[in-house]
């Protein structure tokens, strides 16, 4: 009992200090801090911009993706999807997802036209209804195919959709190497995250770990571990495996990529709504 009370007292003193003293000291250092703040923001932005720049020029890609969606009690479902992506200027990528498993959704095709700032355009072809349907820009926080990934997590990266801050250095990756710690805050009012914190290696600028903080609670909600990076076309590093752990529910989704190919020569016409209609 006494212990708890004592703790409470200490706690309340700390609280007092924070409430009354902190703003004073903050005001004292604010001028100096704001310049270093903007330096840190610029440094982080430059790293992300460089990472983004290094990912230009792959033209198009195809790959097979296996998604293992596992609940904390061990129940799981395995999804298999073939993807085709067409690189566009300024993040205007186009992508196709062809569902192969589970078999009841086989034949479903998902077409996305991404835009750097405006809402993406999405259509779905449902074989059961033999219909191509427009999808209104979904809730960003909605689950992607019932997994721990949200639509926001799966959206194409767009440099200027976020603010960045440089938090420091650490070690990360396989093998362990020097890494940047960068905080990302989305400018999108519909984002599901307060912030994400990424560990990015210094030499190749690959992300190895990303922690997601919920906008609702402000707390850590998900952890993404990225591994098995491969080099394609001597230039582009792509991971073979991503695993997203929900730290609250302990549910996990493992995303594995197979047979990634780049610069194949996919035609723009494959990414039209009409190409989905042809399936009718």
């Amino acid at each position: 009992m006494t212990n708890t009370l004592a703790n409470k007292k200490i706690f309340s003193i700390t609280l007092l200090l924070i409430i009354f003293i902190a703003p004073l000291s903050a005001r004292l250092v604010s001028a100096e801090q704001s310049s270093s703040e903007s330096d840190q923001a610029q440094k982080a932005y430059d790293i992300m911009a460089e990472s983004d720049r290094r990912d230009i020029g792959w033209q198009d890609s195809t790959a097979n993706m296996t998604m293992i969606i596992r609940r904390a009690d061990g129940r799981e479902v395995i999804r298999e999807v073939t993807t085709k992506t067409l690189e566009g200027e300024n993040g205007k990528d186009k992508s196709l997802l062809f569902f192969a498993k589970p078999l009841d959704v086989k034949g479903t095709v998902f077409l996305t036209h991404s835009f750097p700032l405006e809402a993406d355009k999405q259509w779905i072809y449902l074989p059961s209804q033999n219909r191509v349907k427009r999808i209104s820009s979904k809730r960003k926080t909605g689950r992607f195919m019932g997994s721990e990934f949200t639509f926001e997590d799966m959206a194409a990266f767009s440099l200027d959709k976020n603010n960045y801050r440089y938090l420091g250095e650490t070690e990360c990756g396989e093998p362990l190497q020097a890494c940047h710690i960068i905080e990302t805050r989305s400018k999108d009012p519909y984002t599901g995250y307060e912030k994400t914190i990424s560990h990015i290696d210094k030499t190749e600028l690959r992300s190895w770990e990303i922690d997601f903080y919920s906008r609702r609670t402000g707390k850590l909600s998900k952890q993404l571990r990225i591994s098995n990076y491969q080099l394609y076309l001597d230039k582009f590093w792509r991971p073979d495996q991503l695993s997203m752990l929900n730290t609250t529910t302990k549910a996990e989704t493992i995303l594995k990529w197979h047979e990634q190919q780049f610069n194949i020569g996919l035609a723009d016409s494959e990414f039209r709504k009409a190409a989905l209609e042809r399936r009718q």
């Binding site: 209804q129 033999n130 219909r131 035609a267 723009d268 016409s269 009409a274 209609e277 042809r278 009718q280």
Partner: peptide
Amino acid sequence: FKSLSWTKIEPNWELRTGIRTISWR
């Protein structure tokens, strides 16, 4: 048969011949 068809695909035109089920919905 919901479908028994052959489609010739070119970048800017397509010719779809046979039995098909198309929906304008």
